[in-house]
Computed example of a mutant assay.
Amino acid sequence: MTPSEGWTVLQTGYWSMRGGFQGTFDVNITNRSDRDVSDLHLHISLPPAKLAVTGWEGDYWRCWNVEGGAGAEGVHCAADFLAVPGEAFPTLKVHTKGLEHHTDSIDLYAESRGAEPAHAGVPYRIDLST
């Protein structure tokens, strides 16, 4: 995950965004397995009542909001794309908006049938102070 618009990366490694504003981050995944992958599924876990996902875009991606308890809510995406070993999937852009002052993390879980699941996460802070 890489912040692309609206997010600032602090020296501590935290991402920071001003509450009420839009922020976008990119999800880039490369097939590190020894087989073709055509069934990639992502779960992006974040607290949508505090950090709303306002949209997503990317060739070959389809995404939908999911609700559940902590860790289960966020966005689920699937890539309708075949990546050979070493090939990158198309970039997925996730658009967000900070709704209230808080600190949490954005966690991404990638899974493909027959492969070990992968996890990446980043702590973030939404600041509403003036």
Rank of each mutant, 00 (worst) to 15 (best):
V27D: 03
V27W: 01
T30L: 04
T30W: 02
T30M: 11
N31K: 04
N31Y: 05
R32C: 01
S33V: 00
D34A: 12
D34N: 14
R35Q: 12
R35E: 08
V37I: 13
S38I: 01
S38E: 10
I44H: 05
I44Q: 05
S45C: 02
S45P: 01
S45L: 01
L46P: 03
L46T: 14
L46Y: 05
P47F: 12
A49G: 05
A52V: 07
G55E: 13
E57P: 00
E57K: 10
W61N: 02
R62G: 04
R62T: 11
R62M: 05
R62S: 11
C63M: 08
N65M: 08
V66P: 04
E67D: 13
G68F: 14
G68N: 12
A70M: 11
G71A: 08
G71T: 04
G74R: 13
V75I: 15
H76N: 15
C77A: 09
C77N: 09
A78E: 15
A79V: 03
A79C: 14
F81L: 08
L82A: 09
V84D: 10
G86P: 03
A88P: 05
A88V: 03
A88D: 07
A88R: 05
F89N: 05
F89L: 05
F89H: 06
F89S: 06
P90M: 01
P90L: 01
P90Y: 01
T91V: 15
T91F: 01
L92G: 10
L92M: 09
V94D: 07
V94K: 10
V94F: 04
V94T: 04
H95R: 13
H95Q: 14
K97P: 06
G98I: 11
L99P: 14
L99Q: 15
H102R: 06
H102K: 03
T103E: 13
D104I: 01
D104R: 05
S105W: 03
S105M: 02
I106W: 01
I106N: 02
L108R: 00
